[in-house]
Design a protein around this nucleic acid. Structure first.
Lengths: 203, 203
DNA sequence: ATATTTGTTGACCATTTAGTTAAACCATAT
DNA sequence: ATATGGTTTAACTAAATGGTCAACAAATAT
Protein backbone atom coordinates (compact mmCIF):
# COMPACT_ATOMS: atom_id res chain seq x y z
CA UNK A 1 0.00 0.00 0.00
CA UNK A 2 2.83 2.39 0.81
CA UNK A 3 0.44 5.07 1.98
CA UNK A 4 3.29 7.56 1.85
CA UNK A 5 3.96 6.81 -1.77
CA UNK A 6 0.27 6.71 -2.72
CA UNK A 7 -0.23 10.22 -1.49
CA UNK A 8 2.92 11.32 -3.15
CA UNK A 9 1.79 10.14 -6.60
CA UNK A 10 -1.77 11.29 -6.26
CA UNK A 11 -0.62 14.66 -5.01
CA UNK A 12 2.03 14.96 -7.67
CA UNK A 13 -0.75 14.49 -10.21
CA UNK A 14 -2.96 17.07 -8.54
CA UNK A 15 -0.12 19.57 -8.33
CA UNK A 16 0.80 19.03 -11.96
CA UNK A 17 -2.86 19.32 -12.94
CA UNK A 18 -3.16 22.59 -11.03
CA UNK A 19 -0.15 23.96 -12.83
CA UNK A 20 -1.48 23.06 -16.27
CA UNK A 21 -5.19 23.75 -15.75
CA UNK A 22 -4.58 27.10 -14.08
CA UNK A 23 -2.38 28.17 -16.97
CA UNK A 24 -4.34 26.79 -19.89
CA UNK A 25 -7.86 26.23 -18.64
CA UNK A 26 -9.94 23.08 -19.06
CA UNK A 27 -10.04 23.10 -22.84
CA UNK A 28 -6.44 24.18 -23.35
CA UNK A 29 -4.97 21.59 -21.00
CA UNK A 30 -3.73 18.25 -22.32
CA UNK A 31 -3.69 15.06 -20.29
CA UNK A 32 -0.29 14.17 -21.73
CA UNK A 33 1.11 17.52 -20.63
CA UNK A 34 -0.16 16.95 -17.10
CA UNK A 35 1.39 13.48 -17.09
CA UNK A 36 4.71 14.91 -18.29
CA UNK A 37 4.61 17.62 -15.64
CA UNK A 38 3.96 14.96 -12.98
CA UNK A 39 6.59 12.72 -14.57
CA UNK A 40 4.29 9.72 -14.77
CA UNK A 41 2.55 7.68 -17.41
CA UNK A 42 -0.65 9.14 -18.82
CA UNK A 43 -2.62 6.04 -17.79
CA UNK A 44 -1.95 6.83 -14.16
CA UNK A 45 -4.02 9.98 -14.49
CA UNK A 46 -6.99 7.82 -15.34
CA UNK A 47 -6.13 5.37 -12.61
CA UNK A 48 -6.38 8.04 -9.91
CA UNK A 49 -8.95 10.36 -11.47
CA UNK A 50 -11.20 8.56 -13.92
CA UNK A 51 -11.40 11.28 -16.54
CA UNK A 52 -10.14 14.70 -17.50
CA UNK A 53 -13.40 16.16 -16.27
CA UNK A 54 -13.03 14.63 -12.80
CA UNK A 55 -9.40 15.67 -12.54
CA UNK A 56 -10.40 19.15 -13.56
CA UNK A 57 -13.15 19.25 -10.94
CA UNK A 58 -10.71 18.16 -8.25
CA UNK A 59 -8.40 21.00 -9.23
CA UNK A 60 -11.20 23.51 -9.46
CA UNK A 61 -12.68 22.65 -6.10
CA UNK A 62 -9.29 22.84 -4.46
CA UNK A 63 -8.75 26.24 -6.04
CA UNK A 64 -12.16 27.48 -5.00
CA UNK A 65 -11.61 26.31 -1.45
CA UNK A 66 -8.59 28.58 -1.31
CA UNK A 67 -10.70 31.56 -2.35
CA UNK A 68 -13.88 31.02 -0.34
CA UNK A 69 -12.38 31.48 3.14
CA UNK A 70 -10.94 34.82 2.06
CA UNK A 71 -14.35 36.02 0.96
CA UNK A 72 -15.78 34.79 4.23
CA UNK A 73 -13.64 37.35 6.01
CA UNK A 74 -15.81 40.02 4.44
CA UNK A 75 -19.15 38.29 4.49
CA UNK A 76 -19.22 36.10 7.57
CA UNK A 77 -16.71 37.27 10.18
CA UNK A 78 -17.50 39.36 13.25
CA UNK A 79 -14.99 42.09 12.54
CA UNK A 80 -15.90 45.74 12.09
CA UNK A 81 -16.35 47.05 8.57
CA UNK A 82 -12.96 48.74 8.58
CA UNK A 83 -11.24 45.69 9.95
CA UNK A 84 -12.82 43.56 7.27
CA UNK A 85 -11.72 45.87 4.51
CA UNK A 86 -8.21 46.14 5.88
CA UNK A 87 -7.79 42.46 6.59
CA UNK A 88 -9.26 41.27 3.33
CA UNK A 89 -7.18 43.66 1.23
CA UNK A 90 -4.04 42.66 3.05
CA UNK A 91 -4.65 38.91 3.23
CA UNK A 92 -6.06 38.47 -0.22
CA UNK A 93 -3.31 40.35 -1.97
CA UNK A 94 -0.61 38.57 0.02
CA UNK A 95 -2.11 35.23 -0.81
CA UNK A 96 -2.64 35.93 -4.50
CA UNK A 97 0.88 37.23 -4.96
CA UNK A 98 1.84 33.61 -4.32
CA UNK A 99 -0.90 32.17 -6.58
CA UNK A 100 -1.35 34.78 -9.29
CA UNK A 101 -3.14 32.47 -11.75
CA UNK A 102 -5.82 31.39 -9.32
CA UNK A 103 -8.38 34.20 -9.71
CA UNK A 104 -8.12 34.11 -13.46
CA UNK A 105 -8.59 30.35 -13.51
CA UNK A 106 -11.64 30.36 -11.27
CA UNK A 107 -13.41 33.19 -13.03
CA UNK A 108 -12.54 31.85 -16.44
CA UNK A 109 -14.10 28.50 -15.76
CA UNK A 110 -17.13 29.96 -14.02
CA UNK A 111 -17.77 32.18 -17.02
CA UNK A 112 -17.47 29.23 -19.34
CA UNK A 113 -19.83 27.16 -17.23
CA UNK A 114 -22.00 29.36 -15.00
CA UNK A 115 -24.04 26.37 -13.79
CA UNK A 116 -20.97 25.35 -11.82
CA UNK A 117 -21.78 28.06 -9.29
CA UNK A 118 -24.98 26.27 -8.36
CA UNK A 119 -23.05 23.07 -7.72
CA UNK A 120 -20.67 24.96 -5.47
CA UNK A 121 -23.54 26.53 -3.59
CA UNK A 122 -25.33 23.20 -3.05
CA UNK A 123 -22.00 21.75 -1.89
CA UNK A 124 -22.03 24.25 0.98
CA UNK A 125 -18.97 26.32 1.83
CA UNK A 126 -20.28 29.17 -0.28
CA UNK A 127 -20.27 32.55 1.48
CA UNK A 128 -23.44 34.60 1.40
CA UNK A 129 -23.92 38.34 1.65
CA UNK A 130 -26.80 38.45 4.18
CA UNK A 131 -24.83 39.05 7.34
CA UNK A 132 -22.70 41.71 5.67
CA UNK A 133 -25.83 43.43 4.39
CA UNK A 134 -27.19 43.73 7.92
CA UNK A 135 -23.90 45.11 9.16
CA UNK A 136 -23.80 47.79 6.47
CA UNK A 137 -27.41 48.80 6.97
CA UNK A 138 -26.86 49.14 10.70
CA UNK A 139 -23.71 51.21 10.23
CA UNK A 140 -25.55 53.53 7.85
CA UNK A 141 -28.51 53.87 10.23
CA UNK A 142 -26.12 54.68 13.07
CA UNK A 143 -24.46 57.34 10.93
CA UNK A 144 -21.12 55.59 10.95
CA UNK A 145 -20.65 55.40 7.17
CA UNK A 146 -22.07 57.05 4.09
CA UNK A 147 -25.15 55.42 2.56
CA UNK A 148 -24.19 52.73 0.06
CA UNK A 149 -25.86 49.49 -1.03
CA UNK A 150 -24.12 46.49 0.54
CA UNK A 151 -23.89 44.71 -2.82
CA UNK A 152 -22.22 47.69 -4.41
CA UNK A 153 -19.69 48.01 -1.63
CA UNK A 154 -19.04 44.29 -1.74
CA UNK A 155 -18.50 44.36 -5.50
CA UNK A 156 -16.13 47.29 -5.05
CA UNK A 157 -14.09 45.45 -2.44
CA UNK A 158 -13.78 42.39 -4.64
CA UNK A 159 -13.08 44.41 -7.76
CA UNK A 160 -10.29 46.50 -6.26
CA UNK A 161 -8.57 43.45 -4.84
CA UNK A 162 -9.12 40.79 -7.48
CA UNK A 163 -8.94 42.71 -10.74
CA UNK A 164 -5.26 43.71 -10.50
CA UNK A 165 -4.40 40.01 -10.83
CA UNK A 166 -6.77 39.19 -13.64
CA UNK A 167 -5.98 42.33 -15.58
CA UNK A 168 -2.24 42.16 -15.01
CA UNK A 169 -1.06 41.76 -18.63
CA UNK A 170 -3.27 44.58 -19.83
CA UNK A 171 -2.45 46.96 -17.00
CA UNK A 172 1.26 46.27 -17.32
CA UNK A 173 0.96 47.35 -20.93
CA UNK A 174 -0.88 50.57 -20.13
CA UNK A 175 1.45 51.68 -17.38
CA UNK A 176 4.71 50.34 -18.89
CA UNK A 177 5.58 48.28 -15.87
CA UNK A 178 7.94 45.32 -15.79
CA UNK A 179 6.93 42.19 -13.90
CA UNK A 180 9.01 43.33 -10.98
CA UNK A 181 7.65 46.87 -10.95
CA UNK A 182 4.10 45.57 -11.20
CA UNK A 183 4.65 43.26 -8.27
CA UNK A 184 5.74 46.27 -6.20
CA UNK A 185 2.60 48.12 -7.20
CA UNK A 186 0.52 45.15 -6.11
CA UNK A 187 2.29 44.99 -2.77
CA UNK A 188 1.53 48.64 -2.12
CA UNK A 189 -2.13 47.88 -2.74
CA UNK A 190 -2.32 45.77 0.40
CA UNK A 191 -2.88 49.00 2.34
CA UNK A 192 -3.72 51.46 -0.46
CA UNK A 193 -6.90 49.66 -1.45
CA UNK A 194 -8.23 49.62 2.08
CA UNK A 195 -7.48 53.34 2.45
CA UNK A 196 -9.18 54.06 -0.84
CA UNK A 197 -12.36 52.23 0.15
CA UNK A 198 -12.53 53.60 3.69
CA UNK A 199 -11.93 57.12 2.44
CA UNK A 200 -14.90 56.72 0.16
CA UNK A 201 -17.40 55.40 2.70
CA UNK A 202 -16.43 57.42 5.78
CA UNK A 203 -18.38 60.53 6.65
CA UNK B 1 -17.31 38.86 -57.49
CA UNK B 2 -20.61 39.98 -56.00
CA UNK B 3 -18.89 42.44 -53.71
CA UNK B 4 -22.05 42.74 -51.63
CA UNK B 5 -22.15 39.01 -51.08
CA UNK B 6 -18.40 38.79 -50.43
CA UNK B 7 -18.63 41.17 -47.54
CA UNK B 8 -21.72 39.46 -46.29
CA UNK B 9 -20.07 36.05 -46.10
CA UNK B 10 -16.80 37.30 -44.70
CA UNK B 11 -18.63 39.30 -42.08
CA UNK B 12 -20.97 36.46 -41.27
CA UNK B 13 -17.89 34.38 -40.56
CA UNK B 14 -16.34 37.06 -38.39
CA UNK B 15 -19.55 37.54 -36.44
CA UNK B 16 -19.95 33.83 -35.92
CA UNK B 17 -16.31 33.57 -34.88
CA UNK B 18 -16.78 36.39 -32.36
CA UNK B 19 -19.74 34.60 -30.89
CA UNK B 20 -17.89 31.32 -30.48
CA UNK B 21 -14.45 32.61 -29.53
CA UNK B 22 -15.78 35.07 -26.98
CA UNK B 23 -17.79 32.31 -25.34
CA UNK B 24 -15.30 29.47 -25.47
CA UNK B 25 -11.90 31.03 -25.96
CA UNK B 26 -9.30 30.07 -28.53
CA UNK B 27 -8.76 26.52 -27.31
CA UNK B 28 -12.41 25.77 -26.58
CA UNK B 29 -13.69 26.99 -29.94
CA UNK B 30 -14.21 24.56 -32.82
CA UNK B 31 -13.96 25.53 -36.46
CA UNK B 32 -16.98 23.37 -37.25
CA UNK B 33 -19.01 25.18 -34.62
CA UNK B 34 -18.10 28.53 -36.11
CA UNK B 35 -19.05 27.27 -39.55
CA UNK B 36 -22.39 26.03 -38.24
CA UNK B 37 -23.04 29.34 -36.52
CA UNK B 38 -22.28 31.17 -39.79
CA UNK B 39 -24.32 28.58 -41.72
CA UNK B 40 -21.54 27.86 -44.19
CA UNK B 41 -19.21 25.02 -45.06
CA UNK B 42 -16.16 24.70 -42.87
CA UNK B 43 -13.84 25.04 -45.88
CA UNK B 44 -15.04 28.58 -46.34
CA UNK B 45 -13.48 29.54 -43.03
CA UNK B 46 -10.13 28.56 -44.43
CA UNK B 47 -10.88 30.24 -47.72
CA UNK B 48 -11.38 33.62 -46.05
CA UNK B 49 -9.05 33.27 -43.05
CA UNK B 50 -6.28 30.78 -43.72
CA UNK B 51 -6.22 29.18 -40.27
CA UNK B 52 -7.90 29.09 -36.89
CA UNK B 53 -5.06 31.21 -35.52
CA UNK B 54 -5.60 33.95 -38.10
CA UNK B 55 -9.35 33.92 -37.64
CA UNK B 56 -8.82 34.16 -33.91
CA UNK B 57 -6.45 37.09 -34.32
CA UNK B 58 -8.97 38.92 -36.48
CA UNK B 59 -11.60 38.45 -33.79
CA UNK B 60 -9.23 39.42 -31.00
CA UNK B 61 -8.03 42.59 -32.68
CA UNK B 62 -11.59 43.64 -33.44
CA UNK B 63 -12.49 43.05 -29.80
CA UNK B 64 -9.49 44.95 -28.53
CA UNK B 65 -10.26 47.87 -30.82
CA UNK B 66 -13.60 48.17 -29.09
CA UNK B 67 -11.91 48.40 -25.69
CA UNK B 68 -8.94 50.65 -26.45
CA UNK B 69 -10.91 53.83 -27.28
CA UNK B 70 -12.74 53.55 -23.97
CA UNK B 71 -9.48 53.43 -22.07
CA UNK B 72 -8.27 56.39 -24.09
CA UNK B 73 -11.01 58.45 -22.49
CA UNK B 74 -9.15 58.11 -19.23
CA UNK B 75 -5.59 58.22 -20.45
CA UNK B 76 -5.51 60.51 -23.48
CA UNK B 77 -8.49 62.88 -23.50
CA UNK B 78 -8.43 66.53 -22.40
CA UNK B 79 -11.26 66.22 -19.91
CA UNK B 80 -10.95 67.01 -16.22
CA UNK B 81 -10.29 64.15 -13.83
CA UNK B 82 -13.88 64.09 -12.64
CA UNK B 83 -15.23 64.21 -16.16
CA UNK B 84 -13.01 61.32 -17.13
CA UNK B 85 -14.12 59.20 -14.22
CA UNK B 86 -17.77 60.00 -14.82
CA UNK B 87 -17.66 59.53 -18.57
CA UNK B 88 -15.62 56.35 -18.47
CA UNK B 89 -17.79 54.73 -15.83
CA UNK B 90 -20.91 55.62 -17.71
CA UNK B 91 -19.71 54.81 -21.24
CA UNK B 92 -17.85 51.66 -20.40
CA UNK B 93 -20.66 50.09 -18.42
CA UNK B 94 -23.25 51.02 -21.04
CA UNK B 95 -21.12 49.48 -23.77
CA UNK B 96 -20.27 46.31 -21.87
CA UNK B 97 -23.87 45.69 -20.92
CA UNK B 98 -24.28 45.09 -24.65
CA UNK B 99 -21.10 42.99 -24.97
CA UNK B 100 -20.76 41.27 -21.61
CA UNK B 101 -18.33 38.57 -22.81
CA UNK B 102 -15.82 40.99 -24.25
CA UNK B 103 -13.74 41.86 -21.18
CA UNK B 104 -13.52 38.26 -20.12
CA UNK B 105 -12.45 37.19 -23.59
CA UNK B 106 -9.73 39.81 -23.91
CA UNK B 107 -8.26 39.27 -20.47
CA UNK B 108 -8.48 35.53 -20.76
CA UNK B 109 -6.49 35.43 -23.96
CA UNK B 110 -3.97 38.00 -22.75
CA UNK B 111 -3.35 35.95 -19.65
CA UNK B 112 -2.88 32.83 -21.71
CA UNK B 113 -0.47 34.59 -24.04
CA UNK B 114 1.01 37.70 -22.42
CA UNK B 115 3.36 38.32 -25.36
CA UNK B 116 0.30 39.36 -27.33
CA UNK B 117 0.33 42.67 -25.45
CA UNK B 118 3.67 43.55 -27.05
CA UNK B 119 2.23 42.90 -30.50
CA UNK B 120 -0.69 45.17 -29.72
CA UNK B 121 1.64 47.89 -28.47
CA UNK B 122 3.87 47.73 -31.56
CA UNK B 123 0.74 47.85 -33.70
CA UNK B 124 0.01 51.29 -32.25
CA UNK B 125 -3.45 52.17 -30.93
CA UNK B 126 -2.37 51.24 -27.42
CA UNK B 127 -3.16 53.89 -24.79
CA UNK B 128 -0.39 54.96 -22.42
CA UNK B 129 -0.57 56.37 -18.94
CA UNK B 130 1.93 59.25 -19.28
CA UNK B 131 -0.50 62.06 -19.94
CA UNK B 132 -2.81 60.91 -17.17
CA UNK B 133 0.12 60.73 -14.77
CA UNK B 134 0.96 64.37 -15.41
CA UNK B 135 -2.63 65.39 -14.91
CA UNK B 136 -2.86 63.62 -11.56
CA UNK B 137 0.45 65.00 -10.33
CA UNK B 138 -0.61 68.51 -11.26
CA UNK B 139 -3.97 68.14 -9.54
CA UNK B 140 -2.27 66.91 -6.38
CA UNK B 141 0.28 69.73 -6.45
CA UNK B 142 -2.56 72.24 -6.86
CA UNK B 143 -4.34 70.74 -3.90
CA UNK B 144 -7.34 69.66 -5.96
CA UNK B 145 -7.29 65.99 -4.99
CA UNK B 146 -5.79 63.80 -2.30
CA UNK B 147 -2.32 62.41 -2.98
CA UNK B 148 -2.51 59.10 -4.87
CA UNK B 149 -0.22 57.41 -7.37
CA UNK B 150 -1.61 57.72 -10.89
CA UNK B 151 -1.12 53.99 -11.55
CA UNK B 152 -3.07 53.09 -8.43
CA UNK B 153 -5.93 55.37 -9.31
CA UNK B 154 -5.94 54.07 -12.86
CA UNK B 155 -6.01 50.47 -11.69
CA UNK B 156 -8.88 51.35 -9.36
CA UNK B 157 -10.88 52.94 -12.14
CA UNK B 158 -10.41 49.92 -14.38
CA UNK B 159 -11.06 47.45 -11.58
CA UNK B 160 -14.32 49.01 -10.43
CA UNK B 161 -15.68 49.17 -13.96
CA UNK B 162 -14.37 46.00 -15.57
CA UNK B 163 -14.47 43.47 -12.76
CA UNK B 164 -18.25 43.37 -12.35
CA UNK B 165 -18.46 41.84 -15.83
CA UNK B 166 -15.65 39.34 -15.44
CA UNK B 167 -16.71 38.30 -11.97
CA UNK B 168 -20.43 38.17 -12.75
CA UNK B 169 -21.08 34.47 -12.14
CA UNK B 170 -19.23 34.51 -8.83
CA UNK B 171 -20.77 37.75 -7.58
CA UNK B 172 -24.25 36.62 -8.59
CA UNK B 173 -23.70 33.58 -6.39
CA UNK B 174 -22.53 35.58 -3.38
CA UNK B 175 -25.33 38.12 -3.48
CA UNK B 176 -28.12 35.75 -4.65
CA UNK B 177 -29.00 37.86 -7.66
CA UNK B 178 -30.84 36.66 -10.75
CA UNK B 179 -29.55 37.71 -14.15
CA UNK B 180 -32.13 40.46 -14.25
CA UNK B 181 -31.37 41.74 -10.76
CA UNK B 182 -27.66 41.71 -11.48
CA UNK B 183 -28.16 43.70 -14.64
CA UNK B 184 -29.97 46.34 -12.59
CA UNK B 185 -27.09 46.46 -10.15
CA UNK B 186 -24.69 46.97 -13.04
CA UNK B 187 -26.80 49.78 -14.46
CA UNK B 188 -26.72 51.58 -11.14
CA UNK B 189 -22.96 51.38 -11.21
CA UNK B 190 -22.79 53.76 -14.17
CA UNK B 191 -23.02 56.61 -11.68
CA UNK B 192 -22.28 54.85 -8.38
CA UNK B 193 -18.74 53.91 -9.36
CA UNK B 194 -17.87 57.45 -10.36
CA UNK B 195 -19.26 58.77 -7.06
CA UNK B 196 -17.32 56.15 -5.14
CA UNK B 197 -14.02 57.08 -6.78
CA UNK B 198 -14.51 60.83 -6.59
CA UNK B 199 -15.54 60.58 -2.95
CA UNK B 200 -12.28 58.83 -2.27
CA UNK B 201 -9.92 61.26 -3.98
CA UNK B 202 -11.58 64.57 -3.15
CA UNK B 203 -10.30 66.62 -0.24
C1' DA C 1 7.50 -18.65 -0.04
C1' DT C 2 3.61 -17.27 -2.49
C1' DA C 3 -0.98 -15.49 -3.41
C1' DT C 4 -3.25 -11.15 -3.65
C1' DT C 5 -3.90 -6.55 -3.98
C1' DT C 6 -2.19 -2.09 -5.51
C1' DG C 7 0.54 0.72 -8.59
C1' DT C 8 2.64 1.57 -13.15
C1' DT C 9 3.61 1.10 -17.95
C1' DG C 10 3.50 0.76 -23.21
C1' DA C 11 0.72 -0.28 -26.88
C1' DC C 12 -3.46 0.48 -28.73
C1' DC C 13 -8.25 2.44 -30.11
C1' DA C 14 -11.98 5.54 -31.48
C1' DT C 15 -13.02 10.04 -32.06
C1' DT C 16 -12.26 14.66 -32.82
C1' DT C 17 -10.21 18.28 -35.19
C1' DA C 18 -7.66 21.62 -38.21
C1' DG C 19 -6.69 21.75 -42.60
C1' DT C 20 -6.57 20.19 -47.92
C1' DT C 21 -8.25 19.22 -52.46
C1' DA C 22 -10.73 18.71 -56.49
C1' DA C 23 -14.83 19.42 -58.41
C1' DA C 24 -19.11 22.08 -58.81
C1' DC C 25 -21.40 26.56 -58.93
C1' DC C 26 -22.38 31.05 -60.43
C1' DA C 27 -21.98 35.81 -61.80
C1' DT C 28 -20.00 38.60 -65.24
C1' DA C 29 -17.28 40.04 -69.23
C1' DT C 30 -16.40 38.88 -73.96
C1' DA D 1 -23.06 30.86 -75.59
C1' DT D 2 -19.12 30.50 -73.21
C1' DA D 3 -14.72 31.42 -71.07
C1' DT D 4 -13.10 33.35 -66.75
C1' DG D 5 -12.42 33.93 -62.01
C1' DG D 6 -14.06 34.23 -57.60
C1' DT D 7 -17.08 31.37 -54.34
C1' DT D 8 -18.90 27.16 -52.18
C1' DT D 9 -19.22 22.36 -51.24
C1' DA D 10 -18.40 17.29 -50.08
C1' DA D 11 -15.03 14.05 -49.32
C1' DC D 12 -10.84 13.31 -47.51
C1' DT D 13 -6.29 13.33 -44.63
C1' DA D 14 -3.05 13.46 -40.94
C1' DA D 15 -2.31 14.47 -36.45
C1' DA D 16 -3.80 14.99 -31.84
C1' DT D 17 -6.30 13.50 -28.01
C1' DG D 18 -9.02 11.22 -24.24
C1' DG D 19 -9.43 6.94 -22.84
C1' DT D 20 -8.77 1.55 -22.46
C1' DC D 21 -6.44 -2.77 -21.71
C1' DA D 22 -3.46 -6.36 -20.77
C1' DA D 23 0.73 -7.19 -18.87
C1' DC D 24 4.32 -6.13 -15.64
C1' DA D 25 6.16 -4.51 -10.95
C1' DA D 26 6.02 -3.91 -6.25
C1' DA D 27 4.16 -4.14 -1.88
C1' DT D 28 1.39 -6.62 1.60
C1' DA D 29 -1.03 -10.39 3.63
C1' DT D 30 -1.24 -15.29 4.39
Amino acid sequence: MTKINDISTEERILNAAEQIFENKGMSGARMQEIADEAKINKSLLHYYYRSKQLLFEAVFKKAFNKLAPQISIVLDSDQSICEKIENFSNNYTSFMLKHPYLPNFILQELNRNPKFVNELISLGNFPNIKKFEMQIETAIAEGKIRPIAAEQLFINILALNIFPFIGAPLIKGFINASDKEYKEILKKRKTEVADFIIQSIKL
